[in-house]
Amino acid sequence: MQEQFLADKAFEPFLAKLIAAGPVVGPVGKRSQFVFAPLRSPAEARLDYDVTILPPKKLFFPPAQDLVRFDGDKVEGCIEPVAMVVFGVHPYDVKALDMTDLLFKERNEDRNYLAHREAATLVAMTPQKASSRAFWGSIGTGVEPKGHDALLTKVPGGWIYEARTPKGTALLKHGDFASATKEQSSAARKAGLDAGRKCSANLKHPAAAVAHRMKTVFKDEKLWNGLAEDCFSCGSCNTVCPTCYCFDVQDRWNLDQKSGTRTRYWDACLAEDFSKVTLGANASENFRETKGERFRHRFMRKASYLNEKLGGPACVGCGRCSAACTADIADPVRVIDTIMGRPS
């Protein structure tokens, strides 16, 4: 599809029309940080954001999501997707959504996630800034971002809009677009290529070498216990991760004590009781008892177990875990450097 150009002065009216047509979620400022939130006006959109506190995953797989509702004996599903436009998603988050799409789809299709995802139109955006902990320019470089409906890139004097699906094309009617010139298109391509260099952190090791080394150091308890020594098992790294999708399921009663919901909540494999089962008579078995084991499990998931399925690591380099970690031990760049520097 021919790329389209939208002049700077036509941008706000475009976004205003999108907002008028239906819910649009985009990056907005929250104190000194950014979050994805429903846009009430184009002026709220902070398209110069570096990274959001939580990834856009929360729109399709919210921190708490009802799976089933009940009222007395009546039990019913509650998949109620919202047809929304998600605007300004950085490519690393697009990659992460593509991964969660695949993981929720494989073997048993999880409609509670997929229906929300399918109802959304994803407008990606070439990043204008990178957070200080981001390393998306150097991880999973062989994995192309896909699954988005359009890509928006800032160029001098305006924006280049590349529709990738019919849903992306459908948005064109809301703006005063013109066919992009060769110069404008090549400026967009250059901006795309340059974007990765905005990251100050860099992963020096190829994914395949890391995946292999992860397996060889699996039993190195000293390594993992050392890496996890300061871990508080708080699960902040899991909570902010765009590719983490583990959840707990809990039933909740409404005040009438008759009706309620079965709801899934984000869970964290770093939390102490994540793999714990009761055996009865006050006995229990924790299949991942130490913080070293739990820390290792997370890194195996990110750098090894899923690589074959996803075509690359299950980490997109957003740097959220590095920034969120209470003890500052979660930074994948540092952890992988330590592992790769270890004699095998």
Partner: peptide, 26 residues
């Protein structure tokens, strides 16, 4: 239950995603 505020907006069921498969949790 939606922290991002999307749930407070009018819910527009998307007809295209209905009946595509069962709710695994029902």
């Amino acid at each position: 239950y939606c922290a991002c505020g999307v749930a407070d907006m009018a819910v527009k069921p998307d007809p295209g995603s209905k009946d595509k498969g069962p709710n695994l949790f029902l």
